[in-house]
Design a protein around this nucleic acid. Structure first.
Lengths: 204, 204
DNA sequence: ACGACACTTGTCATGAGATGACAGAATGAG
DNA sequence: CTCATTCTGTCATCTCATGACAAGTGTCGT
């Protein structure tokens, strides 16, 4: 059981308390309107201590989203090796997101991110940090060298950058549907190519 | 010709001087290491004045890239209406980028952006501001309603987000080629779909 | 050419985000 | 209990960013 030790547990509790307080304040007052001092005060630690747990305000806001991305990448690596790349990517993303969608926290986090340009940008920035990881996974699955063939990087950037962004924009434009469904549609379109002449999609 | 007036011209000169000084300092010392004070001092204005021309440090760094995106969107709108969407997008991007590639400034700007996560994220964020514009253009060209069909948004996010990011990553991974060539390859892959089994691409 | 007006700029002040240095308190090991 | 490690708070500092106000400069009508 690797006895966690009192110290470890206390740290973990502080960390989660900071996340909780931050998200509550963010949802109530908005992301930019919330200050680090408020978050720290709500947990009764100094603002300096906040920065020992999170490197920035974005960090605490996106920590949960980060875990989700990790889960998706793990699920992706676990898909059968003979499954086409985008299919594996879609399956992994849909699995993880679908299991999150029942949690209220998931939705408030999505709204928070879409409502704040700073958070939207930060999410992409964090995605970028995983590019190499994902590109290597994709390259291995396709059996190509990412330094020679652009497709692994293209797939990685589409998955980590284009799809989330497109979904944000599409929902902002008024379309309502479960996120997992939007993800599914986006990947399906990508695997068949985007350049088809107009033939009404998906729903009919 | 709408005599610009002395005031207008002076403003324009200050603006360009700030851009010049900023880029020179960025290239010499790096983006994060350069402070607004240094930029303002180099042009002999107050740092307060800097913020009357640019809303942020990112703003001055990306102002040139912004003009390029504008040029690409204009070129896109000017393509023949019966040309497939991604083909039009590719043609527009390749045209504009190819005409920039001879300028040393273009390359240093690319390097600057790829070297700084903050700038990379900011570039995407600025792309987001054009999403609706591009999605409308794409929707019109495809003859579909962007609120009903996800493809316009997917195309927009791929063009403004995935392609630049993928190119950055691909070059960071060691592949060398003119940017316009990378753009061409990326769009060609997207129009045929990414999900094909491995068949060595482009170069042969 | 002169003067009223609008626009641009500098100075000052302020606030939030982020980081380094150091001392003191809590915790774990012996 | 004692010592060393680790965590935390306080203080100082820096950079980015913005508001308020006064002073300087260009513009335009007369």
């Amino acid at each position: 059981m690797d006895k966690p030790g009192l110290r470890e547990r206390k740290k973990q509790r502080t960390r989660e308390a900071l996340i909780d307080a931050a998200h509550e304040l963010f949802c109530t007052n908005g992301y930019e309107a919330t200050t680090i001092d408020q978050i720290a005060e709500a947990v009764e630690v100094s603002s300096r201590t906040f920065f020992r747990y999170f490197t920035s305000k974005e960090d605490v806001a996106l920590s949960l989203a980060d875990e989700q991305v990790t889960a998706i990448l793990d699920a992706f690596a676990a898909q059968p090796a003979d499954m086409p790349v985008l299919t594996a990517m879609r399956t992994a993303a849909v699995q993880v997101v679908r299991s999150s969608e029942t949690q209220a926290r998931f939705h408030s986090l999505q709204n928070l991110i879409s409502a704040s340009p700073a958070l939207t940008a930060a999410r992409i920035e964090r995605g970028t940090a995983r590019f190499d990881t994902l590109a290597r996974l994709v390259g291995a699955r396709m059996g190509v060298d990412p330094a020679q063939d652009p497709r692994p990087y293209l797939v990685a950037s589409v998955a980590l950058c284009a799809v989330p962004t497109a979904i944000d924009a599409w929902r902002a434009a008024g379309h309502q549907a479960p996120e997992s469904e939007l993800i599914r549609q986006a990947f399906d379109l990508l695997s068949t190519g985007l350049d088809y002449p107009a033939t009404p999609t998906g729903s009919q």
